[in-house]
């Protein structure tokens, strides 16, 4: 495998895990706009343990998950008391506080960042991403997943039907924290360096966007969203210069043409977001879509046992 390919696969794996970290609370109806904060916790936990104590990666990775999960679980209680806009703001604020705290802790390198002596190859993030994907698919197929999805649709009635919505949401939030911690740990180990400015509000926004665009009703959504938005810049990197050259050719320009600005990919992400919210606000992959797909595979004739009453 070429270095370029392994690089992309590493980033893709980390992004998929991060997508599931945001997906779990979102599937239960809670938007977390502070994903980067939890990712930073995991990354710095790993970096610190590795740099200070030389802890091997098989121990730092679970430690990072534990830190993310614990912080998520403990803070879920006050956080999830807030609703709607308040929850979005609170998670956003939490990420800023975490980033600020790390920035001001000299033991964590402050603004200088922290070198990670340990290193893992692309296979570890890839295996981790596969495991996380399987885990989330399993979780969504359990009664726990059922209650999560129900709470997303109508938390009041879900509670009335006998499910402890609060407990479910706290667990979903904590699991999300642990997964974000894992993705942070893998980031630290794959790039051997952590810098708090990497885990900024923009990252939180991107992750939330591609999870919502992928769709939060099924576990297919995040993997699709993450893959699409990780590979999009790579595709654009090769396609955009050609488009630009082509357009320049039409306008009669010749000679060397500067490659287009990196910023275009964000504009494309922004445009897709706006268009998706207009035409398919529930995300690319919806529950109905999956059922239709299954129905198509099964054959239309067998779909209904009898006529609809």
């Amino acid at each position: 495998m070429s270095g370029y390919m392994t690089g992309i696969l590493t980033v893709l794996s980390i992004n998929i895990i991060m997508a599931y970290a945001i997906f779990l609370p979102a599937a239960a109806g809670q938007l977390n706009l502070g994903g980067a904060g939890f990712q930073a916790l995991g990354a710095y936990a790993t970096a610190f343990l590795s740099a200070k104590y030389g802890t091997p990666s098989w121990a730092t990775i679970p430690a990072a998950m534990l830190v993310g999960g614990l912080v998520g679980g403990v803070l879920a209680f006050p956080l999830l008391r807030t609703k709607g806009v308040y929850l979005v703001l609170a998670t956003f604020a939490l990420a800023e506080v975490i980033a600020g705290a790390i920035l001001n802790t000299t033991a964590l390198g402050g603004a200088m960042g922290l070198s990670v002596p340990d290193y893992v190859g692309a296979n570890v993030p890839m295996i981790a991403a596969a495991c996380v994907t399987l885990f989330v698919f399993y979780l969504m197929a359990t009664r726990f997943g059922l209650v999560m999805r129900a709470a997303h649709d109508d938390d009041v009635v879900t509670d009335l039907l006998g499910a402890n919505v609060r407990a479910i949401r706290v667990v979903a939030f904590a699991l999300g924290g642990a997964l974000a911690g894992l993705s942070g740990a893998l980031y630290a180990l794959a790039f051997s360096f952590v810098d708090i400015s990497t885990f900024n509000a923009t990252i939180s926004i991107y992750v939330l966007l591609y999870v919502l665009l992928g769709g939060t009703q099924t576990a297919f959504g995040p993997i699709l969203g993450a893959t699409f938005f990780t590979l999009l810049p790579e595709v654009l990197r090769s396609v955009l210069p050609q488009v630009k050259a082509f357009l320049a050719g039409i306008f009669g320009q010749t000679g060397a043409i500067a490659p287009p600005d990196e910023s275009w990919r964000f504009i494309i992400l922004g445009l897709l977001t706006v268009l998706m919210m207009i035409f398919r606000p529930e995300g690319l992959v919806t529950r109905t879509f999956i059922e239709r797909l299954k129905g198509a595979l099964r054959g239309q004739g067998a779909r209904r046992k009898g006529a609809v009453a």
Partner: peptide, 18 residues
């Protein structure tokens, strides 16, 4: 107040919660 994104069977199963 059924859950719109759950299937019929899932809505019923949800109510088995107790």
């Amino acid at each position: 107040r059924l859950m719109p994104h759950l299937s019929v069977i899932e809505n019923i199963m949800l109510a088995q919660q107790p």
